[in-house]
Amino acid sequence: MARITVWGVHMGAHVGDRPIEGGYVGIGLPAIGDLTKIAPDREAFKAALIVAYPDKKAGAIPVDAGSMFKFLHEIQAGDIVVYPSKADRMVNIGRFTGEAVYVEGDPDEYPTWQKVEWLKHVPRDEFSQAALNEIGSFLTMFRVRRYANEFLAKINLVAPVGITTPPEALTDQQDEIADDDTATVSAAIQAEASTSDFIVKRLMTDLTGHQFEEFIAHLLECMGYTARVTPKSGDGGVDVIAHMDPLGFQPPIVKVQCKRTTGQTPRPDVDQLLGTLGDGEYGLFVNLGSFARGAVELERNRAKLRLINGEQFVELVFEHYAKLSPRYRALIPLKQIFVPDLQQD
């Protein structure tokens, strides 16, 4: 059986669903220009990187150059790609077509693309934490080795057993040794991602749909609202009602729909919530996954609508964790650690 090579690729959250819609993954470093024009040699990539980014730390040069080289010259048609999307907490799995292109002026600043045939999009909570940790690499481009079969199983493939690390991957491993600063940043990112995964998995596995609504109501109370869960039937799509007035007579009144799912919520579900709003009422839709593009566009055009996806929801839990009741702190036990503030670097 032929060896199946599985690659991992990272892109920023700002790209949204464009790589999925466009059938590609991209690599950045736009100041270099067209990477496809660089000689297929690692030293040539290092030299181009030093010229384009003279202030880049010395320890990052071989790492970034190695990523560029692998992206252009080691990926083969038929190789599998795992792309964890930061925007919607999905793990996207596809097959490289073998077509590399340069897109001048790419708005996301990922101008060099490898075209991909996407095969499946899987919520993060369907993978083990160990597998998620492996694809949480700080590298833009890396090989998925230890838990490759966990990702391949989602597309009905299995890698051969007993395959040793191929010779060409030895240089790949050398490139993945980062300087201390890069490794520290990687640890901080991994810690935050692992904690987010832990929170979402606990809420998915330990709460029923109605209990999730109760948790949302409690979180809103921690934020200063008075909130109550509506009856289980006949709620018209409204699960929680919140307001600043303790008696609930004065606007604004917030009608909340809660969806305990790590998948993508379509626009019609959001439309249903909007249909319940009257004068002085606002709509809040909360899920643990993401929202379809149509729903996001609807939010941009409706001042009375707010969508909270899984990443945003976890941030709210972090922010108000100290105010949660002992019951919910026991459900998602966390302790404070100090990590580098990436926004200040």
Rank of each mutant, 00 (worst) to 15 (best):
D175C: 13
F138W: 04
W113L: 11
D172I: 04
V144L: 03
F151T: 01
D180S: 13
D125V: 15
Q129L: 10
V122H: 05
T165H: 00
A100P: 05
L170R: 10
T112F: 04
I155K: 00
A153C: 05
L132Y: 10
T165A: 02
E99F: 09
I135F: 11
G162F: 02
E192W: 05
F127A: 04
E104I: 02
L157G: 08
W118K: 09
A130M: 08
L132S: 07
T97C: 02
I135A: 01
K115T: 14
Q114T: 08
T165C: 02
L132M: 14
V185C: 00
T97Y: 03
D179K: 03
S128K: 09
S194C: 09
R143T: 08
I189H: 00
F142E: 08
N133A: 14
Y102H: 15
D125Y: 15
A131N: 04
A187H: 05
F151P: 07
R146M: 02
S194F: 03
F96K: 02
N133Y: 06
G105W: 02
L152E: 03
V103R: 15
E99C: 12
A148K: 13
T184W: 02
R146Q: 13
F127T: 06
L152Y: 06
L132H: 05
P160G: 06
D180H: 12
A193S: 11
L139R: 14
A153S: 13
R143D: 01
A193W: 09
D106W: 12
R145I: 11
N149Q: 01
A188F: 07
V116M: 04
I189Q: 03
L119K: 01
E176N: 14
A193I: 12
I177V: 14
V101S: 07
P166D: 08
V144C: 03
V122I: 15
R145G: 00
A148N: 03
V103S: 06
V158K: 15
Q129W: 10
A100Q: 13
D125I: 15
V144W: 09
M141K: 03
D180E: 15
G162L: 06
Y102S: 01
E134T: 06
I177H: 08
A148H: 04
W113H: 15
V122L: 07
L170Y: 08
V161K: 07
T195N: 05
S194W: 01
N133L: 13
A191N: 10
K154I: 08
D125W: 12
A148S: 12
N149R: 09
D179F: 05
W118N: 09
I177K: 13
E134C: 06
V101H: 00
K154V: 11
R124E: 07
S196K: 12
D179A: 13
Q114M: 13
L157A: 10
G162D: 05
E117M: 14
V116A: 02
D106L: 05
Q129I: 11
E126S: 07
P160I: 12
Q129R: 11
W113F: 14
